[in-house]
């Protein structure tokens, strides 16, 4: 057990936690933005899965990471646009639409992947390189974990700060919040509710797509069927735990990253607990965290309610 408590252990542990949390944070940020504007996308799992598959296909056929990333984004946006047509244009049930999208994305990506992989075995695609930020990456304990990362991770830090400022300090951000809280009042005040919801949902698709693509293009280099395995839903939980604010969601997602990193670490150092029991840890923690956050709801008032212009 002594090897559990060395500095190098904690450094590696924290680095693993951040690495595992980044896809969740991307998806969580996208979901936060959509939910702020009153649209809940249960289909985040499908958005991520689409992002992961299309980024892999793009990178595989073009040999370029940038093309792969763009394809991943396009795949994510495709699913969120589908959600938008059903929920915003047709004002249908958002939960039902999201569930259908998850199933549809699972079928679509499995089908296309099987077509792609007929007869040939896949090697890994190249992944994004890491760049250590001079100075910052030398901070003991957290330096390597946060500042020796890939470009997508740095982009995420910037986005988190920008969106925090957006919601706290700008009129446009407040208008977005108004759309999710009281769309009728917002419309009366001249805010184009549907336009704002569409923008939010597109950003949701872009960020969810990157979240899925991150798994392929940064972490694994390969696609496997149903590889998101619940991360989309964990991101939904992180949004609730983070009280619908970007930085809160960041902290919550990091917590899940820690739980996941812990179970992987425990497995590698050979703790005499079944890996199957250890694998339960992140999911169990999500449940406990939801329980801990219960009763302090930060849910936008009109979340999940379709907004129909002119209705009451």
């Amino acid at each position: 057990m002594s090897q559990l408590f060395t500095l190098s252990f904690f450094t590696a542990f924290l680095a693993a936690a951040v690495r595992l949390a980044v896809p969740l944070i991307y998806a969580g940020l996208g979901e936060t933005i959509a939910e702020k504007a009153g649209v809940i996308n249960i289909g985040m799992e499908g958005v991520m899965l689409d992002g992961a598959f299309f980024s892999f296909a793009g990178a595989w056929y073009s040999g370029s990471l940038a093309v792969g990333l763009l394809c991943g984004i396009a795949g994510g946006v495709l699913m969120s646009v589908l959600h938008g047509v059903i929920c915003i244009v047709l004002a249908q049930d958002q939960t039902v639409s999201g569930l259908a999208i998850n199933m549809f994305a699972l079928g679509l990506t499995s089908f296309l992947f099987k077509l792609m992989s007929q007869g040939q075995s896949y090697q890994q695609v190249e992944t994004f390189e890491t760049y250590a930020i001079p100075g910052l990456s030398k901070i003991p304990l957290i330096g390597a974990a946060f500042f020796e990362k890939d470009i997508l991770c740095y982009l995420l830090y910037i986005l988190l700060i920008l969106f925090t400022i957006f919601y706290k300090r700008t009129d446009l951000g407040l208008s977005h919040i108004a759309v999710g809280e009281a769309p009728h009042a917002a419309e009366s005040a001249g805010i184009p509710v549907h336009l704002f919801q569409w923008t939010a949902l597109l950003v949701n698709g872009v960020l969810g797509g990157i979240g899925g693509a991150y798994l392929v293009l940064v972490q694994l280099g390969v696609f496997t069927e149903n590889m998101i395995s619940g991360r989309g839903y964990i991101a939904l939980a992180a949004v609730i735990l983070g009280r619908h604010m970007p930085l809160g969601m960041f902290a919550a997602a990091l917590l899940f990253g820690l739980a996941n990193a812990l179970q992987i670490r425990l497995q590698t150092i050979g703790v005499s607990v079944s890996p199957y029991l250890l694998a339960i840890l992140p999911y169990a923690m999500t449940l406990l965290a939801m329980l801990g956050a219960a009763g302090r709801s930060s849910r936008p008032e009109s979340l999940g309610k379709p907004y129909v212009r002119g209705s009451r």
Binding site: I42, T95, S229, G230, Y233, I234, L236, A237, I240, S274, Y276, L277, A279, I280, Y283, A284, T286, L287, M290, L291, A294, G295, S297
Partner: peptide, 22 residues
């Protein structure tokens, strides 16, 4: 507690499936 049943049931799915593996 008004906790989303969607998230709870999905998390329980993963927990049970891993427990079955055990």
């Amino acid at each position: 507690f008004n906790i989303s049943e969607i998230i709870v049931t999905i998390m329980l799915n993963y927990i049970v499936i891993n427990f079955l593996g055990y």
